[in-house]
Simulated scan of single mutants.
Amino acid sequence: MEIDSYLAEAGHRTAALATSHGLAVADAAVRLAEAERFHEEKEALAGKLTERWGEPHHVGLQTVRLRTGTEEIPEPWAELSLRVADVYLWQAAEHGRWVALGVADLDPDDEIQLLLVVTETDPP
Results as ranks from 00 to 15, higher is better:
92 A>M: 06
10 A>Y: 09
103 V>Q: 09
98 W>F: 15
105 D>C: 13
48 K>W: 09
87 V>H: 03
39 H>F: 06
60 G>T: 14
85 A>H: 07
40 E>S: 12
80 L>R: 00
114 L>E: 09
15 A>S: 08
48 K>D: 13
75 E>R: 05
38 F>I: 12
90 W>H: 06
113 Q>E: 15
99 V>K: 08
19 T>V: 08
48 K>P: 01
49 L>Q: 05
6 Y>T: 00
11 G>W: 12
46 A>I: 02
109 D>M: 14
83 R>E: 06
112 I>M: 06
56 P>T: 13
113 Q>F: 08
18 A>P: 02
13 R>K: 10
53 W>R: 08
26 A>N: 04
61 L>N: 05
88 Y>C: 11
33 A>P: 01
45 L>G: 01
115 L>Y: 07
63 T>A: 12
81 S>V: 00
35 A>W: 04
4 D>R: 10
78 A>Y: 02
42 K>N: 03
63 T>L: 07
67 R>W: 04
42 K>V: 02
68 T>C: 05
71 E>S: 08
3 I>Q: 02
115 L>S: 06
108 P>Q: 07
106 L>H: 01
17 L>M: 07
83 R>G: 00
3 I>V: 11
100 A>Q: 10
57 H>R: 15
68 T>P: 02
74 P>H: 03
46 A>Y: 01
20 S>R: 01
36 E>N: 14
70 T>V: 12
107 D>G: 05
94 E>S: 15
107 D>T: 08
54 G>Y: 04
12 H>L: 06
54 G>F: 04
102 G>D: 02
8 A>K: 15
27 D>Y: 07
100 A>T: 11
106 L>C: 01
86 D>W: 08
42 K>A: 12
42 K>S: 06
55 E>Y: 08
50 T>K: 09
52 R>Y: 03
